[in-house]
Simulated scan of single mutants.
Amino acid sequence: MELVNQAVLARQRGDAKAMREFYRAAFAKERAAADLVANKLDLEPTRSVLHRSAAVLALECGELQEAERLIGRALAGNPPDDIVTAAAKWACDTASAMVNVVLDRIPPSFSQDNEQINLYESRFQPIEAQEQHILDEDRRSREAAVAQANKIWTHLQETYGEFPDSVELLHRDR
């Protein structure tokens, strides 16, 4: 989890290289843990949780086929319903990401008059773009809230000086 936290912090700093390195390291560890319990179907929900987590990290690393494999393994055995639901969502995300990768690589001459591609682009890509917009708005709102909280914290520190540790305050209040 520490590696994922470091990846998130690197993303917030705009350090793409460090972010990728942290996600890759986290993915390697999570995949290794999932591999250890892959055939131990009696270890639910631990087994399926590890596979789902590894699949999420595989997607972060752009490892679409590995994510698909891990999702399949997460669904083997008897995983809890919430794992099945999450795995189904990740399966849809993986399939969507794979389609987008393919669409980005095919020549325009092939895709111009292709009914299936036109249908996908007209129906599904706008939904994906809308979902991404919602996620981006949510991220910006959180960043604004954190920035505001940091401003308030700085103002309070400048006005009143260092604050005692909250544990100290609890002991004093008793």
Rank of each mutant, 00 (worst) to 15 (best):
K29W: 02
E30N: 02
R31V: 11
A32C: 06
A33C: 06
A34I: 05
A34T: 01
L36I: 04
L36E: 15
V37D: 00
A38S: 14
D42Q: 14
L43V: 04
L43W: 07
P45T: 11
P45S: 09
T46E: 15
R47L: 05
S48E: 01
V49C: 05
L50Q: 12
L50W: 07
L50V: 00
L50Y: 09
H51S: 07
S53R: 15
S53F: 11
A55Y: 01
A55T: 04
V56R: 13
L57K: 06
A58C: 04
L59M: 15
E60Y: 13
G62Q: 04
E63I: 00
E63Y: 08
L64I: 10
E68P: 00
E68I: 03
R69D: 12
I71W: 01
I71S: 00
G72R: 06
A74T: 01
A74F: 05
L75N: 06
A76C: 09
A76W: 02
G77N: 03
G77Y: 01
D81K: 13
I83N: 02
I83Y: 01
V84C: 11
V84I: 14
T85F: 09
T85L: 10
T85H: 06
A86K: 09
A86P: 00
A87E: 02
A87F: 00
A88T: 14
D93L: 14
D93G: 08
A95F: 14
S96I: 15
A97Q: 15
M98G: 09
M98V: 05
N100Q: 10
V101Q: 13
V102R: 08
V102M: 12
V102W: 05
V102L: 10
L103R: 15
D104T: 03
R105L: 14
P108H: 13
S109L: 06
F110G: 06
S111N: 05
S111K: 14
Q112T: 12
D113T: 13
N114D: 10
N114W: 10
E115A: 10
Q116P: 01
I117E: 06
I117R: 07
N118C: 11
L119S: 11
L119T: 04
Y120H: 10
Y120Q: 05
Y120T: 01
E121P: 03
E121C: 09
S122W: 04
F124V: 15
Q125M: 11
Q125T: 15
P126V: 10
P126Y: 08
I127C: 07
E128N: 14
E128K: 15
